[in-house]
């Protein structure tokens, strides 16, 4: 597993949120490469080199996955379950990003193995702060356990 470039996988179907998220990272000084996929199926394909992402270099995994819960085709919790079910991605940090404050989503996310849960605030400054905190934590401070890919 190659971790050096520490890329970020953003799973987000809302282009406005995508734009704002990318801007927030940039404003926070996080310049790591960010890959954006727009639905659950594409996220799974990207991570496991299947479907539209068949043939992708599987040795490159993102350092963190920012996963929206409400996704077309396959929802976020299901994507998370598949990530945790595969031993190659079982330890991949996944942060749930969502507008929802519903307890059921929170419970389902943690039960499925989410590392963190961030609610997207309406106030963009708060969002930038949250994103910056997230990025710092997962990209710089948190040492991923070393193991087999």
């Amino acid at each position: 597993m190659v971790m050096d470039d520490k890329s970020i996988l953003l799973v987000e179907d809302n282009p406005n949120d995508e734009l704002l998220t990318l801007r927030a990272f940039k404003k926070s000084g996080i310049l790591n490469p960010i890959t954006v996929v727009r639905d659950g199926v594409e996220a799974v394909d990207y991570l496991f080199g299947t479907g539209t992402h068949a043939g992708r270099d599987m040795s490159v995994l993102p350092a963190v996955v920012l996963l929206d819960l409400h996704l077309p085709k396959l929802d976020g919790v299901e994507v998370l379950r598949r990530i945790r079910a595969d031993e190659r991605t079982a330890l991949l940090p996944v942060v749930i990003l969502t507008s929802s404050l519903e307890e059921q989503d929170l419970v389902a996310s943690y039960a499925s193995g989410a590392n963190s849960y961030v609610r997207k605030p309406v106030d963009f400054i708060s969002f930038v702060q949250a994103a910056a905190t997230l990025g710092m934590y997962w990209l710089m401070m948190n040492e991923l356990p070393r193991g087999k890919p």
């Binding site: 809302n14 406005n16 704002l20 801007r23 969502t98 507008s99 997207k120 963009f124 400054i125």
Partner: peptide, 20 residues
């Protein structure tokens, strides 16, 4: 759930892009 998720998303865009 929809209110929570779907109404907040455009609001976030309004706020975010106004700030941008």
């Amino acid at each position: 759930y929809s209110v929570s998720h779907d109404l907040r998303a455009p609001l976030r865009s309004i706020d975010g892009f106004s700030l941008a």
